[in-house]
């Protein structure tokens, strides 16, 4: 079994006792979707909330002085870091899938119509926001730990508020490229995936560098 996958599995086993709390963070945004009658709002909240749980692995590791366990395992530090990113991406993916199934159901029950484009649009925004929040969070946690780096837990909240503020100010009509991307589901998703991949690549490199230089 690949060491990155083993490391991700170890992270899953760390958060196993906290599954109920994590599930709650996936259910809560349903209320926001219902109140705002908007799939986009619901998904955005869901990805914001799940991004806030990425610090769990760091907190549990710190609480139990588990950096010593990570220090003795026969695994490269880069694999450890990539394993944690993989764990976090899987959590984000699960949250997105759950939300993309549950939220349209709730909205349909409330009499709202959810079209295919709404669905793709919400998925793309969800991926983008989750990536945007977590690419800054993880290097922060690696650098400062979960206690000193608690401020990074609030990046999703701050990021969400900033997004809400900026989204109305984006000059979609003035840029032909932006207009085309936003109105084409395929291009929008492609743009989001490429942008997220680039951000993650940079974030992973920074985190690996931090961990390699860190003294435990």
């Amino acid at each position: 079994m690949n060491n990155i996958w083993k490391s991700a599995k170890l992270d899953f086993s760390l958060v196993k006792p906290y599954v109920k709390t994590i599930c709650f963070t996936m259910i809560l945004p349903l209320a926001f979707a219902a109140i705002n009658r908007s799939l986009l709002t619901g998904i955005s909240f869901a990805m914001c909330f799940i991004a806030m749980t990425t610090g769990y692995t760091f907190s549990i590791t710190e609480k139990n002085s588990m950096e010593r366990l990570y220090g003795i395992l026969p695994i490269r530090k880069s694999d450890m870091v990539m394993g944690r990113y993989l764990y976090m991406m899987i959590m984000g993916f699960i949250a997105l899938i759950v939300s993309l199934i549950a939220h349209p159901m709730i909205l349909t029950l409330l009499g709202e119509t959810v079209g295919v484009f709404d669905f793709i649009n919400a998925a793309a925004v969800g991926i983008f926001l989750f990536a945007l929040y977590t690419v800054f969070q993880l290097p922060g946690y690696y650098k400062l730990g979960s206690i000193k780096g608690r401020v990074f837990m609030y990046i999703p909240v701050a990021g969400f508020l900033v997004t809400l503020l900026l989204i109305t100010k984006i000059p979609v009509g003035e840029s032909k490229l932006l207009f085309t991307v936003i109105h084409s589901p395929v291009l929008l998703m492609l743009f989001v995936v490429i942008f997220a991949a680039a951000m993650y690549a940079a974030s992973i490199l920074v985190s690996i560098k931090i961990l390699k230089n860190k003294e435990m």
Binding site: M1, N3, K6, K9, L10, S13, L14, K16, P17, I60, K63, N64, S65, M66, R68, L69, I72, L73, P74, I75
Partner: peptide, 25 residues
């Protein structure tokens, strides 16, 4: 193999979980 002065597993793990988590490596 390394033994420190205090435990380095998650407090919440059952012993069977310790094996599951560590044995893969």
């Amino acid at each position: 193999g390394v033994v420190f002065d205090s435990n380095y597993f998650s407090d919440e793990w059952k012993i069977s979980q310790v094996e599951k988590s560590v044995s893969a490596f």
